[in-house]
Design a protein around this nucleic acid. Sequence first.
DNA 1: GCTTGCGCCTGAATGC
DNA 2: TGCATTCAGGCGCAAG
Length: 283
Amino acid sequence: MPELPEVEVVRQGLERHILQSKVVDVDVLNPRSIRRHIPGATDFAGRLRGRTLTAIRRRGKFLWLVLNDEDALLAHLGMSGQLLVQPGDAPDELHLRIRFRLADGRELRFVDQRTFGAMAISEGGAILPDELSHVAPDPFEAGYDAGAVVEDLRSRRTNVKRALLDQSLISGVGNIYADEALWEAKLHYARPTETLRRTEAHRVLDAVRGVMTAALAAGGTSFDALYVDVDGGSGYFARSLQAYGREGEPCTRCGTPIRRDRFMNRSSFTCPRCQPRPRRPHW
DNA sequence: GCTTGCGCCTGAATGC
DNA sequence: TGCATTCAGGCGCAAG
């Protein structure tokens, strides 16, 4: 599942492989993958033909390829999206959605089994696409202000995990790293945000940055055949996970079996001892 | 204005 | 065995 570290691995891979490449043609094999590009596939391809990829940028889980220092090709990988750089004669992937033919004969390919991902052209989006105006800075950006995030977090009327997953508060965090950060900070996912002390809020935000830094160093988290890198390689952070996916296995801090709950229609993994459920408030 | 819940999507895994 | 159901989950939007 691509979260910030996996998207950053992809960004770095694109930077290594296709910076200054020229797009000569584009095939949209599934229009759903450009559903955010309202003018449609013909317009999409026309705006890319002849353009050069002059920079690869990222905020949170969003990625954009700058076109001649002006417009941008915006991408979100969703659940299962991959951006692969392949020789032109490589066989099509089963879930190939968009093909970008490059001038040197190689292809940039958007492959996405579940089609939750999407691409679009952002006019004038080189620095920061307008489409991302609602996406907060991620913890690795210069504009990230931990103190401001702490105050925003504590002003919300929700629980801490939902807040961490809210891209308008802090971007780049998905289900896996939210669970890992909460385990690290010894906080339960259902903890009401308004009851967080400043030190606790800082602790969980520091944990978010720490776990994502470690994941990036490991090349990201990969499960099964959902590859991460542009050449199809997998990251190996999955073996370092402390909570996510470890139901029934002992907590590495205290030995208590990790439990799995359904929460917000997704799985949440906690150590019941290190992360006790908050006491219900008195009504 | 803010918070919450749903639908989108495919394939693997599970249940009967 | 085979068909049906569940699960994975980020995002945008509608409803509350």
